[in-house]
Design a protein around this nucleic acid. Structure first.
Lengths: 121, 121
DNA sequence: TGGTGACATGACGATATTCAAATATCGTCA
DNA sequence: TGACGATATTTGAATATCGTCATGTCACCA
């Protein structure tokens, strides 16, 4: 019996890892490991054009890594819970590594003060 | 201070995850989680043409995920230790999940008997 | 209702990845 | 050395991905 992709059930995992295999998207995950953020936050933190930021978020969303909610004009993104066990362990390991980074935490705190509904209104 | 890829040091991780973001390559990692194997083993287990198997192994090797040693005509592949801390935690989580799968273990045991230097000579 | 800011998406060129088939290389043995 | 099996690499065509520009949509407000 060959070790097929389906018997191993690696399909969800391969999609997840494929979405994570990109520097920009990993930076987004690193930021979201600390807090829910809206697109304008991410745009500034990543120093990327708006359309590019939005595109990478769409990729992460399609892979089930993030989810979003709308609040007025702003759309907030946050990490999404993982249903697949393999995906869950991978994402948990990643988030744990990023969440412990003090430098990221500070940057996120700065972002939350500098812009967004609490400051831009 | 923007959250750049270099300050986050996600470059090695993005390369690793990109290499892992493929069903075939994940299947190879799953098999190698149980034992060192040669290309002929993998070819049969994956039911893939030789050139494809070899190329996927080259991708994994370029990403530093596997390493190889030659024994006569055969080339054995095994998982490679990870120097980067982020890569290491990701790979460890993956290998732990695969290593506990009894079905994979049995298939690997079968392969090791059915072909290779111990059986094909 | 018109205007503006926040975000998403269609279209495009540039670049990268995929696979199979053919070919090249390497080690072994006669 | 010459032939053969095991593995690696090259090739080329199809496909996918990336980043940007322009445009579209949605929510809010005057």
């Amino acid at each position: 019996m060959p070790v097929t992709a389906s018997t191993l059930e690696v399909r969800p995992l391969s999609r997840t890892l494929k979405a994570l295999g990109d520097e920009t998207r990993l930076r987004i995950i690193a930021l979201l490991s600390h807090s829910e953020l809206c697109v304008c936050h991410l745009e500034r933190a990543l120093d990327l054009p708006q359309s590019n930021t939005s595109r990478q978020l769409a990729v992460l969303k399609a892979a089930g890594l993030v989810e979003s909610r709308r609040e007025g004009s702003w759309v907030y993104y946050r990490l999404s819970p993982q249903l697949d066990a393999l995906c869950d362990s991978q994402v948990k390991a990643l988030v744990a590594a990023f969440a412990s980074r003090e430098a990221i935490r500070r940057e996120v705190a700065r972002l939350l003060k500098a812009c967004g509904p609490d400051a831009c209104t």
